[in-house]
Amino acid sequence: MLFLSMLLMGAIIGFVGAGGSGVIITLLVVGFGVPIHQALAVALGSMAFTTLSGAVSHYREREVVPLTGAVLGAGGLLGALLGAVISNHLPAANLSLLTGGMLLSSALLLYLRIYRADWLARQIPVRGELLTGRPLYLCGVPIGIVCGILSGAFGIGSAAYIQIALMVVFGVPLLQAIGTTMMIIVPISVSGGIGYILYGQLDPRLFIETLAALSIGAYFGAKLTHLAPRAVLRFWIVALPAVGGTIMVLFR
């Protein structure tokens, strides 16, 4: 049942084109009774593999700003390890509630970016040119650390937060912000996963089964993306973290 459920989830994630790590956590915890810390370890470990191929693809298409990604990724590497330590010292009930809250806040940011982009642009002016030199390091490392802590502690990629930071603070155009975000998430997920391994929270069998099912499902789901109306895709990009967060908060 776990393999079949993750197969379907992978197909949905591949179809929508979103990370979906938060929904994976919700399914493991609420659907199959996996302890929250183990679910976070599996989600981060899976994300390390699924985002790597996407980051390489974006890099080949020149949709990545390497230096900006490297600076934030370095900060995220440290932050994710710290986040994993924090997570492993939190009670399971509190961690589930906080993870659900993070998913709901991500859904809100995605909603604003997709459905209220003009309003969001008026409220938060986007930087017109790339941030470089010393300011890049002074802003990039701390922001990377914060995003890493959020990812490592709650098992989600923080993609919505990273993308907005890239555009607003670092002046990265939208298309390159998407690719650069994937690049940043790779070291974050690897470091966070290692943090959970050090605490003995990663179940190898559960991880391999989940990763295999997600990879197979995502491969076939991605082939259907171009067939779906754009409105359907936009809806599910917001709905996935919203549903996952709501279930996590109500049924933790």
Rank of each mutant, 00 (worst) to 15 (best):
L52V: 04
I36V: 10
L108M: 07
R113P: 00
R134Y: 15
L130V: 11
H37V: 00
V126P: 00
G31P: 03
A107T: 02
S46I: 11
H89A: 15
G22S: 04
R62N: 14
I24G: 12
G45Y: 05
I25A: 08
V71D: 07
S53A: 12
R116N: 06
S87F: 10
I124M: 06
Y115V: 03
R62A: 14
V85A: 15
L138F: 12
R116F: 10
A43L: 01
I24A: 14
I114Y: 12
A84V: 11
M47L: 12
F32M: 04
N94E: 15
A48F: 08
L95E: 07
G76P: 01
A93Q: 15
L67R: 08
T68L: 09
S105P: 08
L131P: 11
E63K: 15
L136R: 09
W119A: 12
A70K: 04
G140H: 02
P135L: 08
G69W: 02
G54D: 08
L72N: 02
A39V: 02
L136G: 04
S106L: 07
G33N: 02
L103N: 01
G33V: 04
Y137R: 13
A121S: 14
G54S: 06
S87V: 12
L108H: 05
L138E: 10
V30I: 14
G101F: 08
L52S: 06
L97F: 14
A80M: 06
L110P: 04
L136V: 12
V56L: 13
L52M: 03
V42L: 00
W119T: 12
Y59M: 15
L40F: 09
A43M: 02
L130Y: 09
R122I: 00
S87H: 11
A39I: 04
I25W: 03
G45S: 00
G31K: 09
A92Q: 13
P35T: 02
A70L: 15
L104K: 05
E129Q: 15
A84S: 15
V29T: 04
V30S: 13
R122W: 07
F49H: 03
V126A: 11
S57L: 11
L120M: 05
P125M: 08
G54L: 06
E129P: 01
A70T: 14
G31R: 05
L72A: 01
E129W: 13
P35N: 04
M47F: 06
L138H: 05
F32D: 01
G73R: 10
A80N: 07
Y137D: 13
N94G: 15
Y111D: 06
L131H: 11
L130S: 09
L28A: 09
L112G: 02
G83I: 13
A107C: 05
V85I: 15
L109Y: 07
M102L: 12
R116V: 09
F32E: 05
L77R: 03
L104N: 01
V126D: 07
R127A: 00
A48I: 11
L44D: 02
L40D: 07
A117K: 12
S21Q: 05
G33R: 01
I36L: 01
L81S: 07
P135I: 11
A55R: 04
L103R: 04
S46W: 10
L81G: 13
R122H: 10
V71E: 11
L81N: 07
A121I: 06
G101N: 09
L78D: 08
L112Y: 04
